[in-house]
């Protein structure tokens, strides 16, 4: 099984089908945390995929750096967080040509943001391969203040920008790379249901 199995949901909710090799074409690969394992499995299945690959790796506390470098990508970069590697990712996308494949593996928030960056740069959705690794935490946009709260693990949760209690919808925007959070006590201010852990 490639990555996390999610409960079937509505049509706007993304599906992460697992990394599938697009062959020996130029590639940008972004792996976060245990997502590194997906790149290793990809290279194991099709070693040719690494020949023109640019790996951007966010270890997030894991120790897969040496193993990824050993796959022999054309370029390898390690950065501490997604915001830290974003300028490099944008440069890579800006320099890329048609035929460049994009592989993204990691948590849902990272997949969502990197996909949004790629789509904005002109990458077609069909050139992006994704695989989910990590917890069920979600990246949520508050529909009211527009602020984005990262790593949301409960439903409802408190918007880190405006402080409203929001419930977690499955409705997802690829442009924003985020799910929608809506005020849970809008009709009955103060009546907030008990927080529950989000499950995949």
């Amino acid at each position: 099984m490639a990555g996390t199995a999610f409960t079937p949901s509505i049509l706007s909710r993304p599906v992460y089908a697992g990394l599938v090799s697009r062959g020996a074409t130029p590639a940008i690969m972004l792996a976060e945390g245990e997502g590194a394992l997906a790149l290793m499995a990809l290279a194991d299945h099709d070693p040719a995929v690494m020949g023109h690959a640019h790996i951007i790796h966010i270890p997030a506390g894991t120790g897969h750096g040496a193993a990824l470098q050993a796959l022999g990508p054309a370029m390898y970069h390690e950065g501490p967080t997604l915001p830290a590697v974003l300028p490099r990712l944008r440069k890579a996308l800006g320099d890329a040509h048609m035929g460049t494949a994009l592989y993204i593996a990691g948590t849902e928030g990272v997949i969502g943001q990197v996909t949004a960056e790629a789509l904005a740069a002109g990458v077609a959705a069909g050139a992006i391969s994704t695989e989910h690794h990590g917890g069920a935490a979600r990246r949520m946009q508050c529909v009211h203040c527009k602020g984005i709260t990262e790593d949301v693990v409960t439903d409802p949760f408190i918007c880190s920008h405006c402080g409203l209690s929001l419930f977690v919808r499955d409705h997802f925007s690829r442009r924003l790379g985020a799910f929608q959070g809506v005020c849970v006590d809008a009709e009955t201010p103060g009546q907030i249901p008990a927080m529950q852990e989000i499950r995949p």
């Binding site: 890329a96 040509h97 048609m98 035929g99 740069a121 002109g122």
Partner: peptide, 9 residues
């Protein structure tokens, strides 16, 4: 014709 075209072509 198709080689080297910019992303988003």
């Amino acid at each position: 014709v198709l080689s080297g075209q910019p992303l988003g072509t």
